[in-house]
C-alpha cells in the first residue's frame, strides 16, 4: 500500500510572528520556516506503518514556492521514499489544496492519505475533511491512534470530552492530532540519503486545478496588547474588586 503525506512549509513555531507593515499578512521574509508540526506527526505515522510492514511506499507532497523542496527533503530524511512538489506562488487555500491533492490521489492511487489535522499558520483545519469529501472516501480526523488492518483502519479520535473509536473502510483520509506519536529527528546519514531520493515538480496547471483564492484577506492586525495588571494588598481587596469592579462574584 502506498501512503500519501502532504507537508506544509510554515513559519517555525518558535518564531514570534510580526504583522506586515501594509497589514496584508504576516512577515515571512527572513523568517525561519519549518515543516508544520502536525505534518511531522503524519510523516512519522506513515514511516512507522512502513516499518511495521503495513505500507510499501511513502510519497511526501508539498504545495507552494520552490523552497518547499526543503520541507519535502526533511520528510524524505525522516523516511519518506519520494517527493512531489506542486510549485505555485499563489497562497493556496484549503479547497485548492484539497483539489490538488485529489488530482494527485487519482494519479498515484494511494491506499491512505495522512495529513496534519491543521497547519499552525492559518489554523484552518479543513483540508483533510475537504479531500475526503471530494474523493468520497472515509475520514478519520484528529486521530491519536491508528491500526491498519485488511481493507479497514481502526482509529481513535480526540473529540471534545473524550475519545471516539471508529472503524473506517479503506482507502481513507486520516488527520493527525498531537498525541498520535512523537516524531523522530532525522539523523545525519538519513539526511544525506534523502539527497538521492527523487523529487518531482508539477504545477497546478499540469494537474488541471484552478488555485485562484476564493477568499480575500481584508486586513491582518496584531492582537491588542495586554494591559498591565494591578496589584492588590490582600485577600479582602481582591474579593472586593472581584465583586464590585469585575462583578464576577
Amino acid at each position: 500500500m502506498k501512503i500519501l503525506v502532504p507537508v506544509k512549509r510554515v513559519v517555525d513555531f518558535n518564531v514570534k510572528v510580526r504583522v506586515k507593515a501594509d497589514h496584508t499578512g504576516v512577515e515571512t521574509a527572513n523568517v525561519k520556516m519549518s515543516m508544520n508540526p502536525f505534518d511531522e506527526i503524519a510523516v512519522e505515522e506513515a514511516v512507522r506503518l512502513k516499518e511495521q510492514g503495513a505500507a510499501s511506499e511513502i510519497v511526501a507532497v508539498s504545495i507552494g514556492v520552490a523552497q518547499c523542496q526543503e520541507t519535502i527533503r526533511t520528510a524524505l530524511a525522516m523516511g519518506a521514499d519520494r517527493g512531489i512538489l506542486i510549485e505555485t506562488r499563489v497562497e493556496t487555500q484549503p479547497l485548492a489544496v484539497a483539489k490538488l491533492l485529489k488530482a494527485l490521489v487519482e494519479r498515484e492511487s494511494p491506499g491512505l492519505v495522512i495529513l496534519g489535522k491543521q497547519a499552525i499558520d492559518d489554523d484552518c483545519n479543513q483540508t483533510g475533511q475537504m479531500l475526503a469529501a471530494l474523493l468520497g472516501w472515509a475520514q478519520g480526523t484528529f486521530i491519536s491512534k491508528a491500526k491498519i488492518g485488511d481493507g479497514k483502519a481502526e482509529v481513535v479520535r480526540e473529540v471534545d470530552g473524550g475519545l471516539e473509536s471508529l472503524v473506517l473502510k479503506m482507502p481513507a483520509v486520516l488527520t493527525a492530532d498531537l498525541r498520535l506519536n512523537e516524531p523522530r529527528y532525522a539523523s545525519l546519514p538519513n539526511i544525506m540519503k534523502a539527497k538521492k531520493k527523487p523529487i518531482e515538480t508539477l504545477t497546478p496547471e499540469a494537474l488541471g486545478v484552478d488555485v485562484t483564492p476564493r477568499i480575500a484577506t481584508l486586513k491582518v492586525e496584531e492582537p491588542p496588547k495586554r494591559k498591565a495588571g494591578g496589584k492588590v494588598a490582600g485577600v479582602a481587596e481582591l474579593v472586593d474588586k472581584l465583586k464590585n469592579e469585575a462583578k464576577v462574584i
Binding site: E70, A77, Y185, K195
Partner: peptide, 16 residues
C-alpha cells in the same frame, strides 16, 4: 547547504 540546514534544524528541535 540544504542538508546542513536540515541537520541544523533537526538538532535545534532536539535541543529545544
Amino acid at each position: 547547504s540544504e542538508e546542513q540546514r536540515i541537520f541544523r534544524d533537526q538538532v535545534r528541535a532536539f535541543a529545544e
